[in-house]
Design a protein around this nucleic acid. Structure first.
Lengths: 149, 149
DNA sequence: CCAAGATGAATGCAAATGCATTGAACGCGG
DNA sequence: CCGCGTTCAATGCATTTGCATTCATCTTGG
């Protein structure tokens, strides 16, 4: 699988990846919106924070984990902070940086989003896979692609 | 695969889909840019036009095929037209609509983009799949997800 | 034939993204 | 311990996206 020209199957995989993601992500995002909930990116940040020890992360950690551009992280945190969902606090061990900590309201919102999000994932992804085996296979293939380089 | 709560494997597939797409698409898009070429969306439109009979499509066809929002298609066409790659022309059979036709310059650009694009797909997707079988499997799974509803 | 709703496309405006630059603090080599 | 390259984060600005609205034309039921 590493010659110069991609096989026809690789090209179909590429097209599928782009299209499937657009289709599924779009549908899920739309459901969140219809439920009056904030966009997925907010959920992603809140989940990463909640999973992290102490409920906090450095901005560049968020950037790495969510594959976002640095200025976008900066402003995403702005919005979350403005909404009272996270809090920036000084970082003793590095004067340039800071910690971003999830707040009580942040945890509450995440808890409220999850059922809607979960149902949307099931409806738009889970229900469209043939079998549990298909889900496993897909997850495994995609996981290897999601890894750094 | 159609109960209410997604299995753990479905959730991993979801995460993988979002992350893999971000990683791979980002890398491919970056290569096009480094080569001084326009964004992928331009290529997509040009390819759809070139494949279509007569080298032209109605805007809403482009919208459907590429899963774009209507106003975005409208402005994407603006940019392409401005760059001389496509041409809008009146649509005899429907006075509201129009045809968007690829120009010579459009075909030339597409031809120039393809080798770079193809190599990027191979490097960032093809080369990271274990085998031809993996590519086939992935393509098949994603194709079913990319289909409408 | 006409009115009323549906559909195709454009536009105004707010929000988000990408990109280059800036400013501050870190850490290493000398 | 100092200077210099590097890293962390924010900001300004141009571009793109999202969303609601608008305008025009088409279609259909009466």
């Amino acid at each position: 699988m590493s010659e110069t020209a991609p096989s026809e199957a690789v090209i179909r995989a590429w097209t599928g990846l782009v299209r499937a993601q657009a289709r599924v992500l779009g549908a899920v995002e739309a459901e969140l919106k219809r439920a009056g909930l904030p966009p997925l990116a907010w959920y992603d940040v809140l989940r990463e924070l909640q999973r992290a020890p102490g409920g906090r992360l450095r901005p560049h950690e968020i950037e790495r984990r969510l594959l976002l551009a640095q200025p976008n992280v900066s402003r995403l945190i702005d919005r979350l902070e403005h909404a009272g969902l996270v809090q920036r606090c000084p970082c003793p061990e590095d004067g340039r940086g800071q910690h971003v900590a999830i707040t009580k309201a942040g945890r509450a919102l995440r808890r409220r989003m999850w059922p809607v999000y979960r149902a949307a994932i099931q409806r738009h992804l889970g229900a469209r896979l043939e079998s549990a085996r298909a889900a496993e296979t897909l997850a495994a293939l995609l996981a290897s692609l999601a890894e750094p380089a």
